[in-house]
Design a protein around this nucleic acid. Structure first.
Lengths: 187, 187
DNA sequence: CCCGTACCCGAGGCACCCCTCAAGTACGAT
DNA sequence: ATCGTACTTGAGGGGTGCCTCGGGTACGGG
């Protein structure tokens, strides 16, 4: 926990850094099940070295994902600052999707395709609670139809994320726009 | 083309049948990139025999998918018989999704994940034209918002299919219901 | 019943991946 | 400059999958 461990030797620190960068690239492209040998190759390092630094795939994932979660926290803050609860919700949804479709690893982390590591499970719950907050506000303001559950919204966003992952840029934007219209409360 | 080829020997016909059944199961579970050795194993046949009957993966796929397309044609007929253009559309969409989420191979065929065989490309265009027909009717009746393109609808359905494939049964039904509401024309 | 041949088998070559470990390298404290 | 050791290396064993091909099996016409 605390930084009581001796600092890494310079070459080791460099290698670890290269590995993390390479893993980010490979996981973003191939998902969390991407090839570790490919990671080592791209890092310019032997496969043995990869296993020295990260004994299991999950330790690598855990070292990699936390930074990316900052983005989601940022979206939540942005949503909290938006006075209109409906706009807060749609803005959050759009931001989240744009993030998830850019990064296959993040999507798999959120959707739990991988029996991954501790930090990951936390992250997932964290993101969900942000979404839940935004939704609750919209619901209390009467902006969202009352028969729509949190899970329905999650499923819609999840679906469009999967689409974005396979089609690449932007195919999800119009559908999201129309679909969200279907969640408006028309008393 | 015509059945000028000598009929198969009895054991060969049996093996071919077993292979097709096994392939259907494996492709439905694992997608069109599923293991051919697994197919041979489940068919109770050697891998060599599989390659005797189907020299490439695509010949196997082509022999397998056409029957399943009948279902989609049926949905289109049902939609044509429905007097209300909006109900025709939503019914068709629901039926299509329920089919695509049951069969990963069919979904991949439609979404073109696989650089597959001739019959498949036809099938895809065929299904699209059915959808286009239903949509055009709804649009001409003024039931659907005019700024929604065919592609937007396709993308939404595609997205929910992907969701259904990963979550299994039913997670797409409510989201589809709400999302379609967003496509209603509220002049 | 017999034989030609249509068909089947499965070992084996190739490629990729996971993970380990004994031997070698190079960092940095002295 | 020297040496202990933290770190790196890459061959290698085990696994899975694709596809081929030479030898064996059994079907069915005669």
């Amino acid at each position: 926990m605390c930084a009581m461990t001796r600092p890494l030797r310079r070459d080791a620190a460099r290698n670890r850094d290269h590995l993390l960068r390479a893993a980010a690239a490979v996981f973003t492209e191939q998902g969390l099940a991407g090839s570790l040998e490919e990671v080592a190759r791209r890092a310019g390092v032997s496969i043995g070295t990869l296993y020295n630094h990260f004994p299991t795939r999950d330790t690598l994932i855990d070292a990699l994902l936390p930074p990316r979660l900052a983005a989601v926290d940022g979206f939540a803050a942005e949503a909290a600052a938006e006075p209109d609860p409906w706009l807060a919700f749609t803005g959050f949804a759009t931001n989240l999707l744009s993030q998830l479709t850019k990064d296959r690893a993040l999507l798999e982390a959120f959707t739990g395709d991988h029996p991954a590591a501790a930090a990951l499970a936390d992250a997932c719950r964290h993101g969900m609670s942000h979404l839940s907050t935004v939704l609750t506000r919209a619901r209390q303001a009467g902006a969202i139809r009352p028969d729509a559950t949190d899970q329905d919204v999650v499923n819609l966003l999840w679906a469009l994320s999967l689409l974005g992952e396979t089609t690449g840029e932007g195919a999800w934007r119009q559908p999201l726009h129309f679909a969200l219209d279907g969640f408006v409360n028309r008393r």
